[in-house]
Amino acid sequence: MSTTEAPLTPGPSVADGDADAPREVGRRRRIVRRLIGNPLAVISFAVLLVAVVVAVFAPWIAPYSPEQTDFARTFAPPGTSGHLLGTDDLGRDVLSRLILGSRASLEVGLLAVATALVVGVPLGLASGYFRSLDAVISRFTDLLLAFPFLILAVGLAAIRGASLGNAAVAIGIAQIPGFIRLVRSETLRLKSLDFVTASIVDGAGDLWVLGKHVLPNATSVILVQATVAIPAAILGEAVLSFLGLGIQPPDPSLGTMLATAQQFAARAPWTAILPGVTIMVLVLAFNIFGDSLRDALDPKGSRS
């Protein structure tokens, strides 16, 4: 608890409400300092950094092509020369498939959250700011919520076929309500604050107030929500691909790797265990970093 550092104002974003430049820089520096001071935040950030670098350069880093089969060496256990993490039922290199599978996971994660952000943030702003739109957007939110992501994915797969893109869209649509509700309540809160009221009284246009005051001050909560939404999307992709509703074989995906491994788990446990551990490490890193970020942004000091 670092209560001494807490600003006197009620929310994290209020301190920089009037775009007071030196104060804003001070706040950022304080957040970064808190993050660096938290070993869990540093470790999780390092893991994410490595994951992103590996994903970007995946084709060059992976020792083999993920689709290259070698029927002479199927089910080679981890440690076999040339195959650090072994091979699968078709003799494909597990490490290479993990690397390209993680890349696909991150792709779906980012694509899904981007979808949710692009639709959710403007609707949340509009819903919180314009009273006349609130009821309509709230019903839309309820409607989206009524379709769980797997059911959405089932529907999309039935209509448009299963693919990485459709899986990302299904997960993204399912995440829209979360962003709408979050941004809506943040907008409601900010709208009632003096500096925003002052700006409105001053004759500023709605779009200007939203763009200049509300959105910038809502970024920190949106950011935290995004760091929670990406790992959820990664888990979602794994589930969908596992069920055959996402990425289609032979394209590497951690989910499809597990689906194949299900048949051979007793014979080659590493093909079942490694993709799961990879997913868990990725998701855990995002979740821990998200928690740390929320704590660092919380002016009341950290909770955990």
Binding site: L258, A265, A266
Partner: peptide, 27 residues
């Protein structure tokens, strides 16, 4: 408790199911 909760949130459940079948049912 916090650590277990974080892992519980991050572990893919279907994978946990596969591992459980592998070690608690099949083996």
């Amino acid at each position: 408790a916090n650590g277990l909760a974080l892992i519980g949130l991050s572990v893919p459940h279907f994978w946990l199911g596969l591992v459980a079948i592998l070690y608690l049912a099949v083996a």
